[in-house]
Amino acid sequence: MILVTGATGNVGRHAIRLLLDNGNQVAAVTRNAPAADLPLEAHVVVADPSAPQSLATSLDGVDAILLSPRAVADAGAELLSLAVEHGVTRVVVLSATTVEHPAGQERFAAHFKAVEDAAKASGLQWTFLRCSDFAANALGWAPQIRSTGIVRGAYGDAATSPIHERDIAAVAVKALTDTAHAGRHYLLTGPQSLTQRDKVRLIGLAIGRELTFQEVSPEQVRQSMLAQGVPEDVPERLLGSLADFAKQAGPSTDMVDRLLGRPALTFAEWAAEHADAFRS
């Protein structure tokens, strides 16, 4: 049995589907089962990963855990200790490139590093997937694109190599099911360095509409996001990283190609798959 935290997230959903298709048993952790819309074949665990004791009875029979640091908040070490007590042998951590390529506020990278350190100290076999920004983050632009065709944002020239969530999930499944990946940390990025302006242009090509990126101040972006009810740490995380990526592009690797034996999916492919989200 493989237990997936962050089961309703971009990576978690794809990982669950891939694991099930490969014949693995999956325990999918969610705080809200009725709203989760998880596959019928998955064993749904209603629990809060940030309160590990709520998972205690569900860890029996679990061999490996896909661990989302955002899902566990500050309880990573406690959850991993509990996992060891229940006979879990392996953990795959969804980490971030900022652990080894600093960008943005240090406290955000420090959170991922703390979970990595807890995994190393736990005695479990561990694998760290240090991911670049998710292509799916661009879905935050969808309301603007649908209504006006203009994305108002800061640091339009900030460049990263966005990664398709399906590629992260595919690598995670390999690490969860093959001990050859134990003790490894992988820097996972998309295949192409793109500015924010580039990503907006590629979304426009996918939907057959000319789109525009309009530069505004970081404070305007912050206030707009807060007005939409976004938690305060989200614009702080985003804007801090973008400010640094505007000075120096984020890392780009071919690790996905090497691990999966095929080319990494491009942002253009991601945009084509999600075109309906951007159409008015």
Rank of each mutant, 00 (worst) to 15 (best):
F134C: 04
R146W: 01
A110N: 05
N137T: 06
A73I: 00
A114R: 15
A42H: 14
V99M: 01
A119N: 05
Q53C: 03
R90T: 13
L40P: 06
A135R: 11
I65P: 04
L139P: 05
G76T: 04
P69T: 01
A135E: 08
V115M: 07
A118D: 01
T127P: 03
S122Y: 02
T57M: 05
R107W: 07
G61H: 01
R31V: 04
G76R: 08
S147R: 15
P69C: 02
H111F: 01
S58F: 14
P52Q: 04
E116I: 03
S147A: 15
H101E: 11
V115I: 15
D117L: 03
A96L: 05
L80C: 10
D48F: 01
A114L: 08
A33L: 05
E106N: 09
L40N: 01
H43E: 15
G87A: 13
I145L: 14
T97S: 05
S54C: 08
G104A: 11
H101L: 03
A73S: 14
N137S: 11
E106P: 00
V91F: 13
A64R: 10
D48T: 10
L55W: 04
E116F: 08
E85C: 12
I65M: 10
E116Q: 07
S54A: 06
H111V: 00
I145W: 05
A36V: 12
V72M: 02
L59Q: 06
S54F: 10
A36C: 15
G140M: 12
A51P: 00
L124Y: 09
Q125G: 03
D133A: 13
R31Q: 10
L139D: 13
I65L: 08
S95I: 07
D133V: 15
G87H: 13
V93R: 05
E100M: 07
T97P: 00
V93H: 09
P52N: 04
L124D: 12
C131G: 07
P39A: 12
F108L: 04
R107Y: 07
D117V: 02
R146E: 02
V91C: 08
A119M: 01
L40K: 14
